[in-house]
Nucleic acid binder design. Structure first.
Lengths: 259, 259
DNA sequence: CAACGCCGTGCCTATATTTGGAACAGGCGA
DNA sequence: TCGCCTGTTCCAAATATAGGCACGGCGTTG
C-alpha cells in the first residue's frame, strides 16, 4: 500500500541479503529504484539508526539496531522461552542437535537450537531457512497449516534426494498421518547423511506454534535411536504446548485431564 | 527526511517496546499519528511480512521476519564470529559470564555472551543495553569514541552508586587512562554486587569495534581474580583485534611484529 | 597525464502519494 | 438497549515523494 515504506523495506532486505556494505547506485539498480530515492530513503534509515554509512567508501550497511529490534521480537514470544530448557535437556540426553522452528513464508525458520557436542555436526545457524516439504521438521509444521497453504506447498513440492517422500501423493499421505500422530521422522531426505525427528507444538488456540526437532548424522541415528528421538520430540512438544496454554485435544483415549 | 518511512519505523519500535500485540488506536495515540495512517502503514508492514495481525483481537505485533533480518546483520559482521570462541574460552577458564558489546546510541548493546555456570548469575539477556559511563564495560568503549560523543556522554553522566567514578572529572581521568592502557575494571558501580573487567577491541581502521567483558558477582571476583579477568580481557581483545585486521599501534615496546 | 566513467550527494518541479477527518460495522460492558 | 470502544474504509485536499539532472570527488583506463 504505502509505496515509500515498501521501498524502504526492500532496501533493508537487500542490504540484509548482501551482508556487507552496498552502494546507493547498486541498490538502485538491483531494486529498480531511482538513485535519488534510494539515497533519501537510506538517509532516513541512517537517521533512525537502522543503517550506517562506511566513512571511506560511502557505502551503506544495516546497523545492529535492526538486530536489537529483532531480539525484542523473539523475547516477546513465549515459545522460545518455554522451549529453551527442553531443547537443552534433549540435546544433553541424546547428544544430538535440537532445534526449534516456526513457519515463515512457506519455509521453516530456525529460531533457536542447541548444538550437539559431537565433532560431526549439522551446520545450520540461527535464522537459517529449511524447505518445508523435504524433512520431518518441515512437514510437522506444514501438516497443520490452512488448506490453501498446504495446497500451495504441495504444488511446488519436489524431492531433493532419492530417499523418503518422492511424490505429491506420498506427501499428502504423510501429512494426513502427521495430523493423526503429531510427529514424524525422516532420513537422507533433505540432505544425504542427515536424519531427524520432529513433533508439532500447539498454542492455546489450537494452531501450530512451532516444531521441535532433533537432528543428526544418519550414521549416528540408527532406526532405534531415531525412534527414541521422535518420542522425545513428542514429549517435549507436549510439555511446551501445555505451557503455552494448549488443551490437549484428547480424542477419547485420554478422557481424564481434569482442570 | 522521509516522514512516511520515519513513521513506519516508529511503529516498529513501538511494537518492539510493547512486546505484545498492540491496537491501531493505541499506537496512534502513543505516537500521535492519525489512526488511518497507522492502519495503512501497519497494512504495508503486514504485507511485507514484518508484522502480523492477531485474528481474534485485530491487534498487531511484529513477526519473526524482523528477527530474521536482524540475525542477518550480526552474521554479516565479522566481530561476533571471531569473538565467539574467545568468549567461550574465557567463560570456561574463569567460570564467569563473558560478554561482547558494541556502542549503540550512547549505550552499550550486548550482542553476544556466554553465561557463567554458577547458580548466582548476572541477568542480562542478549540485546540488553547498559549505561556507557557507569562500568568498565562501557568506558572502554566510550574512551575511543569521537570527541563530541565523549563530551555528550560525560555531560549527562551521573553516578549510579556510591562506588567507583563519582564525578565528571574522575570520569575524564579514567577515560584518558583507558586510552593509554586499553582496559579497565569496575566494582559495585553499575549495580551493587556486580564487578567486571573489560578491554577494547579495534578494527583495521583503528576505530573501536567493540568491547570484551568478563563480569560476575563482587563476592566471587576478588581483587586478584578481577585483575586476572582484566588480563584475559586484554589478551582476548588483542586476539580479536588482530583477526579483524587491526595493526597494533606498538608505541615502541614491541618493534618487531613482522607481517 | 588526461579523459573517462562511476561514485555519493543535492536541487527542483510535476505529480502521484499520503494525509486525516468523517463515517461504518462489529464487539464489549454497563 | 444504549454508549463507547475497536479496526476498517472512503475521499478530497495538501503535501511529501519521485526522479531527471547536475556537481564534485575518486579510481581506472587509454
Amino acid at each position: 500500500m504505502s509505496v515509500t515504506v515498501e521501498k524502504a523495506l526492500q532496501l533493508i532486505e537487500a542490504m540484509a541479503r548482501a551482508g556487507k556494505p552496498v552502494g546507493v547506485s547498486q541498490l538502485g539498480r538491483d531494486l529498480q529504484i531511482n538513485k535519488s530515492t534510494v539515497h533519501r530513503l537510506l538517509d532516513t534509515l541512517v537517521r533512525q539508526g537502522y543503517a550506517c554509512q562506511e566513512e571511506d567508501s560511502g557505502r551503506y550497511a544495516l546497523s545492529v539496531k535492526l538486530w536489537e529490534m529483532g531480539i525484542g521480537v523473539v523475547r516477546g514470544l513465549s515459545l522460545p522461552q518455554v522451549a529453551r530448557p527442553l531443547l537443552e535437556a534433549a540435546a544433553l540426553e541424546t547428544g544430538e542437535t535440537t532445534m526449534l522452528g516456526v513457519v515463515q513464508e512457506r519455509e521453516v525458520l530456525i529460531i533457536d537450537k542447541v548444538d550437539s557436542l559431537h565433532p560431526l555436526q549439522i551446520f545450520s545457524p540461527l535464522g537459517t531457512r529449511l524447505p518445508i516439504c523435504n524433512s520431518a521438521f518441515g512437514r510437522v509444521l506444514l501438516a497443520f497449516q490452512p488448506e490453501a497453504f498446504i495446497e500451495a506447498a504441495v504444488a511446488e513440492f519436489a524431492p531433493r534426494t532419492a530417499f523418503g517422500i518422492q511424490t505429491q501423493a506420498q506427501l499428502r499421505e504423510d501429512l494426513a498421518r502427521i495430523r493423526a500422530e503429531g510427529s514424524s521422522q525422516s532420513r537422507d531426505e533433505w540432505q544425504i547423511g542427515i536424519a531427524g525427528a520432529a513433533a508439532s507444538i500447539h498454542d492455546a488456540k489450537g494452531g501450530v506454534a512451532g516444531a521441535f526437532c532433533i537432528t543428526g548424522p544418519t550414521a549416528r541415528l540408527t532406526e532405534a535411536k531415531l525412534r527414541d528421538c521422535r518420542a522425545r520430540c513428542v514429549a517435549a512438544s507436549q510439555a511446551i504446548s501445555q505451557q503455552l496454554g494448549h488443551i490437549a485435544p484428547g480424542p477419547a483415549r485420554q478422557a481424564a485431564g481434569a482442570q
